[in-house]
């Protein structure tokens, strides 16, 4: 897994509450047996018109937002299904950080397993970033996981954040969970022995 230490990039404002996993990637695109290649179908129902052409009203189809690395959105982002295809599609598009006031549990967890940072910030800070990103297409911020800080170029926005230490450690080092767990092989075997 690619470590997540510091991410600098364009912020795409997706100003909506309860963005669900069917919006992020509809079920019809979950048929692949690969982990990659879902990016073109990210927000498929909104990014494309009936004839398959791009919907230019959708944020990710506009100018500098096409190369967004960070998405900022409303509360309860990622609600709905457990499909890991949602973070896979975001990552495949190029987005490695989602900033929102709150996230749905399974989506939140799935992000960390794929080197993505779902970053919870207070609603007022989310709003400041959202508004500045809307007013300034191409607006960039730095998400510094090492320093636990989000800041923009002119340092008008500087927000310190909290993230669980263990998850941060895994992201910073790009650690795979299974390897960590297998260090406890003895404990697992002992548990199984007690069950019989």
């Amino acid at each position: 897994m690619e470590p997540f230490v510091q991410l600098e990039g364009v912020v795409a404002p997706l100003d909506a509450v309860n963005v669900d996993t069917d919006m992020i990637i509809p079920a019809v695109y979950l048929k692949s047996i690969e982990r990659t290649g879902f990016g073109p179908n990210l927000f498929d129902r909104y990014r494309y018109n009936e004839d398959g052409s791009e919907n230019l009203d959708f944020i990710l189809n506009q100018g500098p937002y096409r190369s967004s690395k960070i998405l900022v959105s409303g509360p309860n982002f990622g609600c709905g299904s457990s499909r890991e295809h949602a973070p896979w599609a975001l990552e495949d598009f190029g987005i490695r950080c989602i900033i929102a006031p709150s996230f749905a549990d399974i989506f939140f967890n799935n992000c960390f397993k794929n080197g993505l940072l779902p970053l919870i910030l207070p609603e007022t800070d989310v709003r400041r970033i959202m508004d500045k990103a809307k007013d300034n297409p191409g607006f960039e911020i730095t998400v510094d996981l090492e320093a636990k800080q989000v800041r923009d170029g002119d340092e008008e926005i500087v927000v310190d954040f909290e993230v669980d230490d263990f998850r941060r450690y895994c992201l910073l080092n790009g650690l795979d969970d299974i390897g960590l767990t297998l260090q406890h092989e003895d404990a697992i075997a002992a548990f199984e022995a007690r069950q019989v």
Partner: peptide, 20 residues
């Protein structure tokens, strides 16, 4: 509980789940 595919792999390999 519902889990993502990385956790499916984790459970297949270890029969355990990491959960807060």
């Amino acid at each position: 509980v519902g889990i993502g595919t990385s956790e499916v792999e984790h459970v297949l390999a270890t029969q355990t789940l990491r959960q807060f």
